[in-house]
């Protein structure tokens, strides 16, 4: 009986310690998703990798702070920021008016367009008329899902927790096409799984700026981030990171 009580106390203490990790002042906690290659993904050792992560590290170096990464599922990523689980989101997030109601954004760190990916040689047309009655896959809570919902009203929209699951289902033939960020689709089409698939039609240029989200009250942080983005653009760090992932400039 006594050992039982002791182990309960021990576990209780364990749980409390887990929550009370102290934060030093010069740490910037960054939220990212980790399921969005090549921008952010988790490697075999459980660490975050990708374009977003490299950019975030470069920005932290520039701002002379220490980056601490927190992984968070996409549909909870803004609530997580508002709940102060982390101070900034570097996760390929589009700057949209809807999101601006909840958070503030830095200047862009790359630009994005939306584009369909579909089986090679499909007869589909990437128009509302051409996709009528077809099934479109997209990730939940993304600009792609929002765009598909508004512009392709005659199609069935399937939303996924992660972009990876949307690709799995396109590969399985459960959806006719996936609407996604062009660069993410580009990455997938270059994997072995994507070899029988191709871009469908042109990109939709929706004037989409990918930026870092912070809480509205953290105005200083926005200024610092903007200065740091300008600095890494100017000193060639950005170009180096860009070249690691894409053979063209994505700014």
């Amino acid at each position: 009986m006594k050992t039982w009580i002791r182990s309960v106390l021990f576990l209780g203490a364990l749980a409390v310690c887990g929550s009370g990790a102290a934060q030093a002042k010069d740490v910037l906690r960054i939220g990212s998703e980790g399921a969005y290659p090549p921008f952010n993904m988790i490697d075999k050792d459980g660490n975050l990798q990708g374009f977003d992560i490299d950019i975030a590290k470069a920005l932290c170096d520039e701002m002379k702070v220490e980056c601490k990464f927190v992984t968070q599922d996409w549909d909870g990523i803004i609530p997580g920021l508002l709940a102060k689980k982390y101070d900034a989101i570097v996760a390929s997030m589009s700057d949209t008016p809807e999101r601006r109601k909840a958070v503030a954004f830095s200047n862009k760190y790359y630009s994005n367009m939306l584009r369909f990916a579909a089986p090679k040689g499909t007869a589909l047309k990437p128009t509302a008329e051409g996709m009528k009655g077809k099934t479109i896959g997209a990730q939940r809570a993304t600009i792609a899902a929002q765009y598909a919902k508004e512009k392709f009203k005659g199609s069935e929209l399937k939303v996924y927790d992660t972009q990876e699951n949307a690709w799995l289902d396109l590969g399985a033939g459960r959806t006719d096409a996936v609407l996604a960020d062009m660069l993410v689709a580009y990455e997938w089409l270059n994997t072995p799984e994507g070899q029988n698939y191709a871009f469908l039609g042109d990109s939709f240029d929706i004037d989409d700026h990918i930026a870092i989200a912070v809480r509205k009250q953290d105005k200083d942080l926005v200024k610092k981030l903007n200065a740091a983005i300008d600095a890494i653009r100017a000193n060639g760090t950005y170009a180096k990171i860009n070249a690691k992932y894409f053979p063209f400039d994505i700014y």
Partner: peptide
Amino acid sequence: VAGMEELMRKTSIAVSF
């Protein structure tokens, strides 16, 4: 679903790789 890295999530990560 809430981002805790237990068995199920580790499995999903492995699947995406």
